[in-house]
Amino acid sequence: MSADLRLVLFDMDGTLVDSQGAITGAMAEAFAQVGHIAPSRDAILSIVGLSLDLAIEQLTPDMDAATRDAVVEAYKSSYMVSRQAAGRSHSPLYPGTSDMLATLNAVPEYLLGVATGKSQRGLDAVIAAHELTCFVTRQSADHHPSKPHPSMIHTAMAETGVAREHTVMIGDTSYDIDMGRAAGVTTIAVPWGYHPVDQLNADYIIDNFAQLAPLLHQIWKA
């Protein structure tokens, strides 16, 4: 492993992109298709970050397996159709995201990556829509156990050759921060996402993306 390289991993939904309208809309349509009322907005946003199957299971503990599977497939279909229709406005970047990624990507020893509960298809679509070409490692729900299992981070570190002490995980939910802790990396929480930031127990909290580059310098200056 390289002693010089640093790995900066980001969650996607609720951290880099504001997808709450897209997610709650697709959930409402999916539940309607099976004749059920969707859970509340807060309930839906509370499971963002989990793999879709597990998220639906947590939202519908009393639903039979066949109906639950139908909700999963209806959600996938609704989300894809709305994404194709809306383009980049479907899940807009949070303020300061583009500038922050450009700033970090310009640092030679920094490698940027994503660890997300999205499917690979969904992740690729967001990256293409916003031209996020800076990510050298892209971990999605299709290839790993659901967060907070540390598999995504372990794989990202293996792909880049970066040690855990030189890796950070940045996210907005307990699933992101717990995943980072399970992997033994430094965790950074953002407050604009889907879980209350004061309940995440992250190592650090930033108020906006302008604070991220100085914080990383502070973390790794030794």
Rank of each mutant, 00 (worst) to 15 (best):
16 L>D: 11
53 D>Y: 13
134 C>N: 12
188 I>W: 02
61 P>K: 07
10 F>C: 07
205 I>V: 15
37 I>F: 10
213 A>F: 13
193 G>C: 02
183 A>W: 04
120 Q>H: 13
146 S>W: 00
68 R>Q: 12
211 Q>M: 06
173 T>K: 02
67 T>W: 01
210 A>I: 05
134 C>P: 06
135 F>I: 07
34 V>E: 05
3 A>T: 12
155 T>C: 06
76 K>G: 14
19 S>L: 02
199 Q>H: 02
120 Q>I: 07
84 Q>N: 08
122 G>K: 01
141 A>W: 03
199 Q>M: 00
61 P>S: 08
68 R>A: 09
79 Y>E: 12
43 A>F: 08
175 Y>L: 00
59 L>P: 03
26 A>G: 10
179 M>L: 05
79 Y>L: 13
109 E>Q: 13
116 T>V: 01
46 S>L: 07
147 K>C: 02
41 R>I: 11
126 V>Q: 08
125 A>M: 03
213 A>G: 12
133 T>F: 14
40 S>Q: 14
2 S>H: 10
169 M>T: 00
159 E>R: 07
188 I>L: 03
112 L>I: 03
184 G>D: 11
88 R>G: 08
78 S>T: 14
149 H>I: 00
80 M>F: 15
191 P>C: 07
123 L>D: 04
24 T>F: 14
150 P>M: 01
77 S>M: 09
76 K>Y: 12
195 H>G: 01
5 L>F: 08
92 P>C: 05
20 Q>E: 12
79 Y>W: 12
54 L>Q: 09
38 A>Q: 10
75 Y>H: 13
143 H>Y: 14
212 L>W: 03
173 T>N: 02
47 I>D: 08
4 D>G: 15
151 S>P: 01
141 A>D: 07
101 L>V: 03
104 L>D: 04
127 I>R: 10
79 Y>Q: 13
33 Q>D: 13
136 V>E: 12
32 A>M: 04
43 A>D: 15
58 Q>H: 11
148 P>G: 03
137 T>Q: 08
153 I>M: 05
169 M>V: 00
53 D>K: 15
9 L>H: 06
174 S>C: 06
24 T>P: 09
17 V>S: 11
203 D>G: 09
26 A>Y: 02
198 D>L: 05
109 E>Y: 11
6 R>Y: 07
158 A>W: 09
98 S>P: 15
90 H>A: 14
220 W>H: 14
88 R>Y: 06
208 N>T: 06
37 I>E: 15
210 A>F: 05
134 C>S: 13
53 D>I: 15
45 L>W: 12
110 Y>L: 05
126 V>D: 09
